[in-house]
């Protein structure tokens, strides 16, 4: 089967596996995304369960990052981007025109591909979110949030002596963990991670993966990754995207051992990607 046949099949098929779960944290129905006239996502139905880590995999340009960025309306910053469909965070319609994105993004945090700490001190990086949302009324409270967040991100011991040193002076892996600490400092319910390890070396990656496992106890995590090993290691469920369509969603173990769909199998066995 060559690629064009795959494509034909992808357009024809509905999502296989179990895209929907009971008592979902986030549920998306019939999501279409357009960049100007070009459609990037075709009719995706997907649920994200509570305290679950869902991995989104697929070849480059398949729309998995675009889909992830719909979940906290980061696509709003792109003028030509248009989102259709129903996206719910518990009982809240994410794309309700009357919804304010500020509290939404406080509930659904995001970690980006490239570590992007602010050019401020480590402390100020972590304290920024609580400050703008007014989460701490006193200095000691803020100190506590910063410490807890850094501890949760596994960075506290490495930076506790230089909290007021620049965040940009850390190594790449530390910077990414700082960004995670910054995200969890506002206590979001869901954390979106857009290829958080693609700019990191294997040791830093391993640390982040450990961290994801720990965080999944308290947070719901959606992670986009290019590394299938990573998806297999950290996630409970895996969603496979192909050319803007959601092909298959299943438990991670099943996806990587016995996928339901030919395309998924072709991708995870490395026949294309």
């Amino acid at each position: 089967m060559n690629i064009s046949e795959h494509t034909a099949q992808a357009h024809a098929d509905k999502t296989v596996g179990e895209p929907l779960v009971k008592n979902a944290k986030m549920s998306m129905r019939g999501v279409n995304v357009f960049y100007a006239d070009k459609q990037a996502i075709y009719g995706v139905d997907l649920d994200i369960g509570r305290n679950e880590v869902i991995a989104m995999i697929g070849p480059s340009g398949c729309g998995k990052s675009t889909f992830l960025r719909c979940l906290n309306r980061m696509n709003d910053t792109i003028d030509i981007c248009r989102v259709e469909g129903k996206l719910m965070l518990e009982n809240q319609d994410i794309y309700d025109p009357s919804l304010d994105v500020v509290p939404l993004r406080a509930r659904v945090g995001m970690v980006f591909q490239k570590p992007n700490p602010f050019p401020k001190s480590i402390y100020d990086n972590v304290a920024y979110g609580p400050r703008i949302h007014g989460l701490a009324s006193r200095r000691t409270e803020l100190d506590e949030i910063v410490e807890t967040s850094l501890r949760k991100a596994g960075l506290w011991d490495e930076v506790k002596d230089r909290l007021h040193g620049p965040g940009t002076g850390l190594s790449g892996g530390q910077q990414q963990r700082l960004c995670i600490a910054r995200t969890i400092a506002v206590s979001p319910e869901v954390i979106l991670m857009d290829e958080p390890c693609s700019a990191l070396d294997p040791i830093a990656t391993a640390k982040i993966e450990e961290l994801i496992a720990e965080l999944s106890e308290n947070y719901t995590i959606a992670i986009v990754t290019h590394s299938m090993q990573q998806a297999a290691r950290v996630s409970h469920r895996t969603a496979y995207f192909h050319l803007g369509k959601l092909i298959e969603v299943n438990d991670t173990e099943k996806v990587f051992t016995n996928p339901d769909h030919d395309l998924t199998e072709a991708y995870i066995t490395g026949r294309f990607g």
């Binding site: 906290n72 980061m74 910053t77 994105v101 500020v102 509290p103 939404l104 993004r105 406080a106 945090g109 995001m110 980006f112 490239k114 992007n116 700490p117 602010f118 050019p119 920024y128 979110g129 703008i132 949302h133 960004c179 910054r182 995200t183 506002v186």
Partner: peptide
């Protein structure tokens, strides 16, 4: 100003 800084701020819920 790098777009990543803007995204970081917006992603944290900054207006």
């Amino acid at each position: 100003v790098p777009p990543s800084i803007r995204e970081a701020a917006l992603g944290l819920g900054a207006s």
